[in-house]
Amino acid sequence: MSKKNVVSIEDRIPKLKQARKKKANRRLIFYLSIFFFLISIIVYLQSPLSHIKTIQIHGNSHVSDETIIEQSGLTMDTNIWMLNHENIEKKLSKNPVIESVEVSRNLPWTVNIHVNEFKIVGYMKEETNYFPILGNGVTLKELGQTSFNGKSPLILGFTKEEYLHRMAEELNELPFNISALISEVHWQPTEDNKYKILLYMNDGYMVDATIRNFADNMQVYPSIVAQLEPQSKGIIHLGVGVYFESFNKKPADDVEEIDGVEEGNLTE
């Protein structure tokens, strides 16, 4: 063996020590990095840097931003990483105007609250003021106004909350193209039927109906009107049987069948 290839132990020991030292230094730097990283996280979580700076409210028109923020329990001291989405949504869902709510976090400092309110299904008139009624039957007394836009019907004569709530729920299920045709809804209970209602429509017809299954029964209204002569106005009955009674007086036996819709006289 050539002497040139022989390395003495004395020559190798310094190199081994140097390699071990470098390895130990790298390990120390690694552990120190983790340590300072964890310390930084703890300091961040305990400092105002992790607090909410912006709360954005979306979708509300009846409930103010301030009310929603107050009811949510959020403040600018709330840690954005400590948000309890389910708890906040539960708190806001107790508001009778709010149908559903979704809370999300937008880093680094923003919380978004998306609100879905019950839609306005009608207006109740008291003296000279109009009060909006929501789809869950809640009347917004704090939002009284001297006029209304006519996009939702007047709801008149409902003196009992039970029936007003049922009516509002049915109107809430109506598609807009049908609800927009309704001008007024009058509660006209009888001894036999406490759910009886009379509707005045924007197209000139009247509808005799019941609160029970009103949304389902009104689905046929457009097809019934389409079968009637434009000049023939009267009452469309939506009950056990669906038929039309004209305002024009005719002989009692003058009844015309129109694809299952009867047309006859308006009884006196």
Rank of each mutant, 00 (worst) to 15 (best):
G59D: 06
R26S: 11
T67K: 11
N60K: 02
K15G: 05
N25H: 09
R27P: 04
I68Y: 01
I55Y: 01
A19H: 00
I29R: 15
S47G: 02
I69K: 14
G73P: 05
Q18N: 07
F37E: 03
K22C: 01
H58R: 12
L28D: 13
N25S: 08
V63G: 04
I42V: 11
T75P: 03
R26L: 14
G59H: 05
K22E: 09
K53H: 12
I34Y: 14
I88L: 05
N79A: 11
S50D: 13
E70R: 12
R26N: 13
K17F: 04
S40H: 05
I29Q: 15
I68E: 01
L49T: 07
I34R: 08
K22Q: 10
S50R: 08
N60W: 02
I42N: 10
L83C: 09
I69Y: 05
D77V: 04
L16A: 05
I39Y: 10
G73A: 06
I57R: 00
I52K: 09
E86N: 12
Q56K: 14
I34Q: 12
F35N: 05
N25K: 14
L49H: 12
F37A: 15
G59V: 04
K21P: 00
N25E: 13
K22L: 10
A19F: 01
V43L: 13
I39L: 15
T75M: 06
P48K: 10
L28C: 08
T67Q: 09
S47I: 02
K17H: 02
L83W: 10
L45S: 04
E70I: 03
V43E: 00
I69H: 10
I34V: 15
S50H: 12
S64Y: 08
I41M: 11
S61Y: 10
V63T: 11
H85F: 07
E89N: 06
I42Y: 13
T54A: 03
S61G: 07
G59L: 07
P48G: 09
T67L: 08
H51L: 04
R27N: 15
E66I: 05
I68D: 01
L16S: 02
R27A: 13
K17S: 03
T67M: 03
I52P: 01
M76C: 00
A24C: 03
K15I: 08
E70K: 13
M82D: 15
K22W: 06
I55H: 01
T78M: 07
L16D: 00
L38D: 04
E70M: 06
Q56L: 12
L38K: 04
S61D: 10
K23T: 05
K23H: 02
P48Q: 10
